[in-house]
Amino acid sequence: MNETAVQPFDQRIRYWTVRVAFLACLPVILLGVPVWWSGIAALLKLLGTLLVIAAILYRFWAILYIGGRKNQRVVQEGPYSMSRHPLYFGTTLGALGFGLMLGSVLLAALFGALTLGILVATASREERFLRAEFGPDYEAYANRVRNRVLPEPGLFTTPDEVTFVPKILRTNGGDALGFLLVLPLVEVIEWIRDLHLAGAFPIF
């Protein structure tokens, strides 16, 4: 097949992969009981909440730069000057935060590793299209910005002004704010645990 015939990655694959991974982890989430002292558990929940907020802000920041320009040109300013897929870094932060909010370093590491692994694989598939679509421009960008997901702050650059399309910002910004659903979700999970219907094994 000719390179120019490469199609953009079907994002539904990523959505369903993440959902299946979450369902696979659900027994551990509901049956596990954190064993930390209450003060440490409260600190973990606070750190997790801050990470979820950071995830929302980071994704929103990336959307300001990519909104309306995805698959149209090689965006390489702002968060895109530090990693090639900053939206995925924001998502990984949110997954880590979710695990910590549940009071478990183990769940945070599990969710973070699973999310990062899925998104790195997704980014690799997406870049097949980007390389075919933009050729030398994308190759030059990839050679300069080596990291797919994890940012390298020393590479940061940004123009003096950034323009955005309000309609697209509203649509994509809603996606970033979707991480706010993690907050009531954690409360529901804690309520289920408190019913003593769960609690089959301790988690750290």
Rank of each mutant, 00 (worst) to 15 (best):
residue 4 T to V: 12
residue 165 V to N: 15
residue 35 V to F: 14
residue 5 A to K: 13
residue 157 T to V: 12
residue 141 Y to T: 01
residue 93 L to Q: 00
residue 44 L to G: 00
residue 171 T to W: 15
residue 136 P to G: 09
residue 179 F to W: 13
residue 175 D to W: 15
residue 166 P to K: 07
residue 87 L to Q: 06
residue 29 I to W: 14
residue 178 G to Q: 06
residue 126 E to T: 02
residue 33 V to M: 13
residue 48 G to M: 09
residue 94 G to H: 00
residue 47 L to S: 07
residue 197 L to D: 07
residue 70 K to M: 09
residue 60 F to A: 09
residue 4 T to P: 12
residue 157 T to F: 04
residue 100 L to N: 02
residue 81 S to P: 06
residue 138 Y to K: 01
residue 102 L to D: 05
residue 15 Y to A: 10
residue 4 T to S: 12
residue 199 G to L: 04
residue 119 L to F: 04
residue 17 T to A: 13
residue 34 P to A: 00
residue 26 L to R: 10
residue 164 F to H: 11
residue 179 F to N: 12
residue 100 L to Q: 00
residue 182 V to I: 14
residue 10 D to V: 11
residue 82 M to D: 04
residue 199 G to Y: 10
residue 15 Y to V: 14
residue 13 I to C: 10
residue 42 A to Q: 05
residue 58 Y to Q: 05
residue 165 V to D: 15
residue 44 L to C: 01
residue 170 R to T: 12
residue 118 I to C: 02
residue 109 A to D: 10
residue 16 W to E: 14
residue 103 G to I: 01
residue 62 A to N: 01
residue 188 V to A: 12
residue 189 I to Y: 13
residue 52 V to P: 05
residue 162 V to K: 11
residue 46 L to I: 03
residue 164 F to W: 09
residue 114 L to E: 04
residue 91 T to H: 06
residue 133 E to P: 08
residue 149 V to W: 06
residue 99 G to D: 07
residue 102 L to S: 04
residue 133 E to W: 03
residue 12 R to E: 14
residue 86 P to F: 02
residue 161 E to Y: 10
residue 42 A to L: 03
residue 46 L to W: 03
residue 140 A to G: 02
residue 131 R to Y: 15
residue 146 R to W: 07
residue 180 L to N: 12
residue 108 A to H: 04
residue 25 C to D: 07
residue 143 N to H: 04
residue 130 L to N: 05
residue 174 G to R: 06
residue 24 A to D: 10
residue 104 S to Q: 06
residue 99 G to M: 06
residue 118 I to G: 03
residue 204 F to D: 07
residue 154 G to K: 11
